[in-house]
Design a protein around this nucleic acid. Structure first.
Lengths: 229, 229
DNA sequence: AATAAAATATGATATAAATCACCTTTGAAA
DNA sequence: TTTCAAAGGTGATTTATATCATATTTTATT
């Protein structure tokens, strides 16, 4: 397995920056950002922050993937979002004035930069472009979650799994979807056993193929058809 | 039935302003707001805006209630939020750069003011307090929806109904909850028949009482216990 | 007041999905 | 390389909830 080691990435040559809220930053902005951020290597399954704790800053993913999840009454995780390179994680709590309502944990080895709360809020205050980007992002996520709620309420698990696989396929881009069955179940919102059975159905229907844990999408159109959207 | 008629409410003596994002406005701000807004009377079940249309401004509820809902594949409504007096409806779409992803319809006769997109965005641009309030509001709603998703995924309909009734009780304040069984079902995320049956159970358990359509909460603690939160 | 049209309610039935129990495979660590 | 825990998988069973059908009540409209 290719061991991603710790590396200090500068904002200037951060490959993920293009896709991020910092994409429009000029050199002066970038220098400021570079001066305040710190860069860390995270192992797989390492928490960035956990529910109910106080936010101390935001996390900018240079490389890797992070799951954002809430916990229900009995402690079962519900994955709300999967963040990939370029995404800033945890900025919602910067504005809410409340502790985190969700937790964030890496799904794979990751390089992630940290920007302290004050530095981040200062950037937002002085940079209208960044600010507008954030307001846009908050709004888009709000819409996304309205759809999420509606799907949960009205679609069957089979439909949600099909829709989730297509969505995850986009997040994983070239790579194959690489999640434990439990994480996948917690994203779809079902029991692990049910997920495994339905995934098997999809295999039998030649919609997907599995390579141990990894899931390869064979028929995106077919999945979309099942998802009904 | 007390017929609420059209009345022109000025921002200065708007009773709902205290609870709104405009509560911190100074006199100069209020004058500006007053100059740009228009005030309308809405009948029951009248749409403010509908999914996929282009946003033209925001709606500020002076009196009445509004349901915000998405539609699933087969057109079934999923109510995402119930807005009451003091709330500003539709501002999410001001920042997203996209058409509405949800619809908004009055649940009762309402007095609602309209602020055009440019005027509103101008206010947000020039008023840091309002802007921060909005960012905070967007963030809080995002957290609320994470919980909503988790409840949908992990709680039974019975639990969700209990939790919904408590939530609605707060929204309706002194009044009794006054929603069609279908709307209530679309909020809880279930079939109307199932909702009616479970509501009957709650009546038998002396948790609620109904007066035709209206629902009176008799035992909030008991409901919270069932809701499991 | 009469009539139509929604909304509410109830019963019967089907089924998707959860749960529990158990076994097998995989992969990390010693 | 062995070992052991975690993850993946299968079967049997139960149940919550959707769906369909139909009756009754409430509300709106003529």
């Amino acid at each position: 397995m290719p061991q991603k080691s710790h590396k200090h990435v500068t904002c200037e040559n951060c490959l993920a920056r293009d896709k991020s809220l910092f994409s429009a930053f000029c050199d002066a902005n970038l220098d400021e950002l570079e001066g305040t951020k710190s860069c860390s290597y995270f192992k797989k399954n390492q928490p960035l922050f956990i529910e109910n704790s106080s936010p101390r800053g935001v996390y900018c993913i240079n490389e890797g993937k992070v799951k954002i999840f809430a916990r229900g009454e009995e402690g079962k995780e519900q994955i709300i979002h999967l963040a990939a390179a370029g995404e800033i994680v945890g900025f919602r709590a910067m504005f809410s004035g409340e502790p985190y309502k969700v937790s964030a944990t890496t799904l794979e080895e990751s390089n992630i930069c940290f920007i302290g709360k004050n530095d981040f809020l200062n950037l937002v205050d002085t940079n209208p472009t960044l600010r507008n980007g954030i307001m846009k992002e908050l709004s888009l996520e709000l819409a996304e979650r309205a759809t999420f709620i509606t799907n949960m309420a009205q679609k069957s698990v089979r439909e949600r799994l099909a829709s989730s696989l297509v969505l995850l396929n986009d997040i994983y881009e070239e790579e194959m979807i690489n999640l434990t069955r439990e994480d996948l179940a917690n994203f779809v919102g079902t029991a692990t056993e049910t997920l495994i059975r339905l995934l098997k159905d999809f295999k039998d229907e030649n919609l997907v193929r599995t390579h141990a844990r990894k899931i390869e999408i064979l028929d995106k159109e077919g999945l979309l058809q099942i998802a009904g959207s």
